[in-house]
Design a protein around this nucleic acid. Sequence first.
RNA 1: GCCUGGGUGGCGGAAUGGUAUACGCGCGAGUCUCAAAAACUCGUGACCUUUAAAGUCUUGAGAGUUCGAGUCUCUCCCCAGGCACCA
Length: 824
Amino acid sequence: MFPYPSGEGLHVGHVRIFTACDVMARYFRMKTGRDTVLSPMGWDAFGLPAENAAIKAKKIPQTMVPHNYANFKKQMQSLSLSFDWGHEFATTDPTYYAFTQWLFLKLYEKGLVYREKVPINWCPKCKTGIANEEVLSDGTHERCGTPTGKKLLPQWVMKITDYAERLLADLDTDISIYFGQSENSDNRIIRGSEGRKGLDWPKGILEMQRNWIGKGRGLSITFPVNEIEQKAIAWTKFWETVYGVTFIVIAPETAQKWMSEGWSAKEDVVSYVDNSLQKSEQQRLEEVGTKTGVDTGLTVTNPVNGARVPVWVADYVLANVGTGIVMGVPAHDERDFDFATKYNLSKIQVVEYDKAEINQRVANGEISFEGEGRLINSGEFSGLSAWGEGKEKMADWMIEQGYAKWETTYHLRDWVFSRQRYWGEPIPLVYCEKCGDENGVVPLTEDQLPLTLPELESYEPTDTGESPLSRVDSWVTTTCPKCGGIAKRETDTMPNWAGSCWYFLAYPWWSSTETEGIIKTYKAKSKFPITDFWKEIAKPAIDEWLPADWYLGGAEHAVLHLLYARFWVKVFQDLGLVDFSEPFLRLRSVGMVLAEDGKKMSKSLGNVINPDDMVKTYGSDATRMYEMFMGPWEQSIAWDSGAISGQVRFLERIKTTMQQEGKVGEKTSPLLVAKLKTLVERVEDGVLNQKFNTSIAGLMEFVNSWREEGQTLAKEHLGMFAKLLSLFAPKSAQELWATNSEGSVEDQAWPDVSKIEGIEALMVKIAVQVNGKMRGIVEVGSEKSKIESEVALIALADEKIKKWVVGEVKKTIFVPGKLLSLVI
RNA sequence: GCCUGGGUGGCGGAAUGGUAUACGCGCGAGUCUCAAAAACUCGUGACCUUUAAAGUCUUGAGAGUUCGAGUCUCUCCCCAGGCACCA
């Protein structure tokens, strides 16, 4: 995942992610060939943090942002991160965002972007509307931590809900279909992913996406309202309790809708609804648990038994869950129980439980209970099992009778896409009174892209929800692309997710030196420059490289970037712009690097570790090694400034050992031949499973063995070791390589284990157990170690073991070359 | 409440059902030095024991499967992250 280049520079957390990327890239280049690897880097540079920092510094982001990413790049290079810099770009480059705008227009033309005046999440500090995904569960804005509110504003919204089902179902995409598609497929290593169903992503992130999409299958049951022309359609997964409905609750939003459709509600209902709708997200969250509501005076008829029950309005019913109307079944739902108890509404038990105590308390109206039991008070269904036959038969019957129908609901809401801020891609739409659509909108044509962001001296956001761009008359006033008359530009900008929704599609064909020029030539010769460019240049490169085999980054994007990018890719697939439905086949999420005190690193706590200082003090190799060694890569871990000295010592020891008399020679000692073979596999295994700490431990063990008295390494094998080391410590490895060989170690092929020649150690240690307990170790020749009778003979002759073998050996278990277990 | 990870020495952690505590940090002793640092060597889970040998115990708790369990099964406890008035 490309970083957001803040003014503070690289964080040690970035170093952890990008070193891992680098280690893997270096490994694959050696293993499968330089031309099989694309390991690019770019800058996600639009958006709030950069803009806020620029405002604070009284500068313009256009000059500040390039300065920031130049610094990031310098830091990355000082860490020997071997990205393919020829493909570098920033999302803020006009040539880049011409494509972002073009892709936006593609979505627009497909009818997936609509304008609506809706109450949206509003951050009062950043003074902009934000998406649902950007509001944390405590109601604060994920960027700045400010409590958000609601604001009614006309917004551009993306219909991500149209793709809800595919976003959910494709999590189970068989990714093996993608291995084997590209030209480089023969070389792609899919170890660890074979036979896997679904995206090879961390379980937790898959689960978070499933929860966020929140598919629910249930019944919509229609309760006709007696007093006015409305139907209360309640959605439920627990329709088997429908005979227990003693009231209906509607959300304030639903009440408002009914009022707008002609219901003249009582004064207290109107004020309750007004009041609730004004509550901020924060307030509503604080009030969870204390339920309030008002009797509307309306009643509905329960279709299943003709019972008339009252309709209440209460804000514990959420408008965006199901239909915004729920059945009140206080005997079998905790929330309904609380509400009914508070307002003295009746309770009817419709499920009887096995546990007498629970059953009695439900019958007495003392508690609610949800669980499997037998239906009672449920007409012809009484006596059937509540979650089995009863549930099934009741559904069939209600549908047959026309009381209910199946309905699948999703938690996912459409994506609010406009931002009332300056530092984002301008939305390429204009308003023309003459030829606009129902909203007055005309899209720009692609030869007019990029629509560049004007440079402004003052671009502070406003409290009114007006974009800063709206203050720039000269920019806002334009001509209509259709009729040529006077038109006004859209002044909202895109969220910073826009650029990151497709950047991975740009890497394969982007050239930091050539793309701008090529686009110019396309513009000169074609009315559809971007479309033609995509077809002729971008698409073939995308076909060759994507989807991405490995995607490494932080878990904080689980339902933000990772959801949005999947959505766009699916749309692009439908538009024929790409040929795949999932952008990232294998995702790995890095653990956080915490400060030494175990807290999050932050300027205000003064506990930040700066990678530049580490490089200066210990060197880039030791810094990289330490970050890869400090713990399992996917796990959060606190920085330990003492422990990095271990890496410095290790790198130093390699050099001093090499200089010692007799350590490098013509032949490798038998012990080291065997160890080198396992080391190659161990390093490889650690890299492919992101267990870099074990790879490094292996390298250390090998050096420890080499340092033992009498152990010699042949020049050839020392070179092999240098190759392994080069993944983690490229500079030290190159020094080592250069002592005996020409060229650059990173250009070499990965060692082939089967070609490691030399005599291996002859003696093998076999563990001996008696009745399952370890009782000794015997050394036998490697040939004999594979033969049970030979090992048993030696073991039983061993004094230490013999004394535990009292009586007859009833059974032996033998693992060739490893273990002998005797059962007495 | 639900979901997903975890729980192993003083610390970070390692271990296809087969020698638990690899590797590193720290700590202790020693070598070198006038001295210190660095470097190097040795030691370092607990108990018993003057020491050693030998032994016993030990991977959150308890049970089970197995010749053999950190690893598999069940019950429970705790920690971290995510979701949640989701009907």
